Computed example of a mutant assay.
Amino acid sequence: MSDMSSIKVEEMRLGLFRVRWILRNLLKTDSHEQKLQLLGSQSSYMFVIHLNIITKDENAHNANDKYKFLIAVEEILPQDSVNVTTSKKVDYGTCQETLLKLNNQSPDSVVKRLNYWASRPVYMWIHPHTGSVYANEIPLQNIADRMWSRIVTGSLPDAITLWIDFGTTTLGEKNIIQGLKRLLYSQSQCDVQFVCKNGEVVGAHTLILSAGSPVFAAMFQSKSLEAGVNKVKIDDCEMDVVKQLLIYLYTGNVPNLSDDEAILLFFKLSDKYGIETLKNECVKVLLKRVTLSNAISLLVLSHVHAVPKLLESVLQFMATNGFEICSQQKWVDLMKHYPDLCLMATRRMTAKNDN
């Protein structure tokens, strides 16, 4: 724990924590860190908060633009026996390095991984304080399995209020979710098995799966599983992906959607098994991540899987960036394989230019 700061942790409601980090002598060093342990409903959970000053612009006309600094919050697995040593200088590279170190030291067991995915935070945000000024909410991004961060431009704060939300609101909800979670990660009373890539197996419960997926409900009702062994093959997915999908069906905790590959994978799985709520979560993220490199692919995806909101968003983006889009090889492929979609996008671009 840094001797240049102090910290206070409060549970505001079940699963929602407010952490007040008071900073002192901030300019003596570029890097600051603070370890903390939660209390109450998540008393076994630990974090390390990092603040690293990236740049300082002495010539900035506005004092609020003088500094650029990184805020990073590192999650530590509950009840993990690993002695985590954090870096004094954390950036995106060292974040990934620390995560790899943790992953290599932690046992890769069904119980450990399911327990982790079921109990992790779903949202974090900060409010920096400078003097009497209380800044607006700044959401942190989940950039990796156990790392949340955000680069902030402005005055250096005297204090930071960090909010950590595990997503539960009542004791009743918490008890039910904990009970379902225990059923899954203890692997007790399972009546169906999922066979993943490389032949790895994880058990589940048909009644719980049927409640969250009409496709699973129909599958189990019609006994269309592999004869005699109650197995569902998802051999195009890694075990960790299937575990996160099961955790969502048992607890409602959204999987890690921090990278584009993961989003597309969970989108296709939720569409395949009729899990509309998870599909909608993926669409929310995709709507914010339309770029020149993925616009054509997302256009096809939204058309094939009938997602009108995403289709409209991509068409608007393509209309604004017509020249760059039409210069890609993907555009040639689109004309060949999806001429109707190509025509639709071309009309949008033409209408935009006419205006």
Results as ranks from 00 to 15, higher is better:
9 V>Y: 02
13 R>T: 14
18 R>A: 06
19 V>D: 07
23 L>Y: 08
24 R>A: 09
28 K>L: 04
28 K>S: 00
37 Q>C: 10
38 L>V: 01
42 Q>V: 04
42 Q>N: 13
49 I>P: 07
51 L>C: 12
53 I>V: 13
57 D>H: 11
60 A>V: 01
65 D>N: 11
73 V>R: 04
73 V>I: 15
74 E>Y: 12
81 S>G: 11
82 V>Q: 12
84 V>H: 13
87 S>F: 09
88 K>G: 12
93 G>A: 05
97 E>I: 10
97 E>M: 13
99 L>R: 09
101 K>R: 15
102 L>N: 04
104 N>E: 13
106 S>L: 02
106 S>D: 03
106 S>I: 07
107 P>C: 08
108 D>H: 06
109 S>G: 12
114 L>C: 08
118 A>F: 02
121 P>W: 03
122 V>K: 11
124 M>T: 05
124 M>L: 15
129 H>T: 14
130 T>V: 15
133 V>C: 12
134 Y>K: 08
134 Y>N: 01
135 A>H: 07
136 N>G: 00
139 P>N: 04
141 Q>M: 10
141 Q>K: 14
155 S>I: 12
157 P>L: 06
158 D>A: 14
160 I>Y: 10
162 L>W: 14
167 G>C: 03
175 N>T: 08
177 I>L: 13
177 I>E: 05
179 G>Q: 12
180 L>Y: 03
181 K>E: 10
184 L>H: 01
185 Y>G: 01
186 S>D: 11
187 Q>T: 06
188 S>D: 15
194 F>G: 00
195 V>T: 10
195 V>L: 12
198 N>D: 14
199 G>M: 02
200 E>R: 04
200 E>D: 11
202 V>E: 01
203 G>A: 02
205 H>A: 06
205 H>V: 13
207 L>T: 05
217 A>G: 06
219 M>Q: 08
225 L>A: 01
225 L>W: 01
226 E>Y: 09
226 E>W: 07
227 A>N: 08
228 G>A: 03
229 V>F: 01
231 K>H: 01
233 K>Q: 14
235 D>C: 14
239 M>L: 14
242 V>N: 07
244 Q>H: 04
252 G>H: 09
256 N>A: 11
256 N>R: 12
259 D>G: 01
267 F>C: 10
270 S>A: 13
273 Y>Q: 07
274 G>P: 08
276 E>S: 11
276 E>Y: 03
278 L>C: 10
283 V>Q: 11
287 L>P: 09
289 R>G: 00
289 R>Y: 02
295 A>C: 14
295 A>L: 14
298 L>S: 04
298 L>T: 02
299 L>S: 00
301 L>N: 05
304 V>P: 03
314 V>M: 14
318 M>C: 11
319 A>P: 13
322 G>A: 10
322 G>D: 09
325 I>E: 01
326 C>Q: 13
329 Q>C: 10
333 D>K: 15
333 D>H: 13
355 N>P: 03
